[in-house]
Design a protein around this nucleic acid. Structure first.
Lengths: 352, 352
DNA sequence: ATATTATGTTGAACCGATTCAAAAAAATGT
DNA sequence: ACATTTTTTTGAATCGGTTCAACATAATAT
């Protein structure tokens, strides 16, 4: 049970100063070849395992890691297809910059705060929907670069968001062109708690999640331009889980059988809607037309294939990671463009 | 641009020793309430951000993080459904134990070695298929607990694997019962390089990936019991990507039109096979029966739904994380059981 | 041969906490 | 009032490196 061999032990054994021994490992070009090899040989003899990671971090102040936080829901990060794409993009940029990826994990708010406080990282990436959050406050206290994804966090170094307004408007315009006149909007949850079911005007007026607010505004603007009154739209707040939406849509169609256009704020929701419509034998796109947002891979395999306003989540994650690691303030949010992906759930004509 | 406020500054300003100031943060019960509140107040006034993470790590030697390494293929970790389930399980256990999850990321072998060397973690989890690897050597050098998933790593603290032999045998027995007599085995890649295409007996004899070796043995044993000669089985080595397998299967059926049973070593491969069979209008399960391994969610939605030998990858990840964080040597590999999930790709009778 | 520049090495300061034996203060028992 | 026990507080040692100004040596220029 000998003690760990330290750099100073190596230096002594090799008869050099500690500074030189350090350079032999960290800045090899500063040490004469012959001497460096001797030092390395001595180190190897002594069983030195190389510089102690934590000691190096303390001295240099660099952790070599990017913190990734999903405050809303942590298990969720590994089940939602969009979150996984985000992670893939983050991972890609981390690999490029030779930085590790620290996923902050916790079971509850309190634990998350201490997880944030104990994370040895150089910057934080936060994916969430709104700001009023203990965890965000803890991150802010760390005084490290912090980049928000899909949300405006007050005091963030940078923010990366989808052009949600325009994306939603595109979806709505598309359904109008396809001939839909009676719309249902299947919203993502509007705030931390979520009140699933019919969404009245008051609730729509106090949406705290940026994504939901913007998409709602985009839908409404486009529909108004198509001479649809907002009051005639049915709004439903959904959990982002296909299974739950499926049942909600069955109920929705029972109550409002004349609905012929469904605007879903995510593909997961849209897929749930397709399943629900299939359950009640409702023809898509014959009777009801459906369009989602995200453009997830699975949408290509549903029956009918899902029309969606696609985003590039991998790239979103990558850019966010890049900005976080750069650490420089970016005043304006980075706005990512969407792309309409027309498939069978909105119109028959484009059967490939 | 003042310097960072340190604990010693707080201690001085509050008129207490540094030790007491430290306790006020880390071991509150050791400090008189009144005094602790005063220290915290002074700290807050001075703008102290709380104990420096890296300094604490250096002193205590605890990183509060679990390293997760995917040496074979890093982008892959976020695209393979099984790997994601594994990550979910690891995340779950990390959350339970209030430990963060450090994903080691790198673009190449060399970078990965230094990523491993720079990771401030308390233990490593390695998911890969074989041992002869620079990265594994680097991890071993760190002298931290190391748990292998799906592979035997020499010198690992513990190993968690599927009961691959029995699982494969189950799959083969099932197809025999369904009446298949002429078999193709679609193998995962056999070693680091992978030689995709027909797999001759020599190559089958020198498989370095444990998973492949075991599953092959399991298939063969069961088929031999069913009076099928190994020489009559067609072996194909596949990349674990549905798209590639799809084309391989089209070619396979052209060359061996009498094949009526396909044993796929993963569901991703099996799904590719279903697609390829659909391309050439081959009836499943009428003409060819297919069974995969893994039991991924998507298998429930293919046409026909995929029969598979299911494993619980989430639990596999969770157990591995638990063992890594415990850090105690476990001599025998932990063997996880499989469960046959009969669906439409192997037999018509069980249409639900 | 001497001045100048480039290269290699040294040694002490520093990064910022936690820990623990010992001292001080407060509480309890007789 | 004194001895004993318990609770608080202290202060210095320690974790294990990296950095940088200063010094020494070697190489090149004049």
């Amino acid at each position: 049970m000998g003690k760990r061999v330290r750099l100073v032990d190596v230096a002594r054994a090799a008869g050099v100063s500690q500074g030189t021994a350090s350079n032999a490992f960290g800045k090899p070009h500063l040490v004469r070849d012959e001497l460096r090899e001797k030092i390395l040989a001595v180190a190897s003899d002594l069983g030195y395992r190389g510089p102690h990671v934590m000691a190096r971090m303390l001295r240099t102040g660099k952790a070599g890691a990017l913190g990734v936080v999903f405050p809303d829901n942590l298990e969720y990060a590994f089940s939602d297809p969009v979150a996984i794409e985000l992670l893939r993009g983050i991972g890609r940029e981390c690999a490029r910059q030779a930085v590790n990826m620290m996923i902050i994990s916790a079971e509850n708010q309190e634990q998350a705060v201490s997880a944030v406080n104990n994370a040895a990282v150089d910057a934080f990436l936060v994916h969430c929907y709104s700001d009023n959050n203990e965890i965000i406050a803890a991150i802010r206290r760390r005084n490290l670069p912090m980049v928000g994804i899909d949300t405006d966090i007050v005091g963030a170094t940078a923010t990366v968001v989808l052009d949600d307004y325009e994306g939603a408007a595109t979806a709505a315009r598309h359904l109008l062109e396809c001939g839909a006149r009676k719309f249902a909007i299947l919203s993502l949850q509007a705030d931390e708690q979520g009140q699933f079911g019919l969404m009245d005007a008051r609730r729509r007026g106090s949406v705290s999640h940026r994504v939901v607010r913007e998409r709602l505004a985009g839908y409404h603007a486009a529909l108004r331009d198509g001479a649809i009154a907002v009051a005639d739209i049915v709004h439903i707040e959904c959990e982002n889980l296909s299974e739950n939406v499926r049942a909600q849509v069955v109920a929705l169609m029972a109550e409002f059988p004349d609905i012929d256009g469904i605007l879903a704020m995510s593909d997961v929701i849209a897929i749930g809607a397709l399943e629900g419509l299939a359950d009640i034998g409702c023809a898509v796109p014959g009777q009801v037309r459906v369009v989602g947002i995200d453009g997830v891979a699975r949408g290509a395999r549903t029956t009918p294939p899902l029309t969606s306003v696609a985003q590039n989540s991998v790239e979103k994650g990558r850019i966010a990671a890049e900005l976080a690691l750069a650490g420089e303030d970016v005043a304006e949010p980075v706005l990512l463009k969407t792309r309409l992906l027309v498939r069978g759930s909105s119109t028959d004509t484009t059967v490939s």
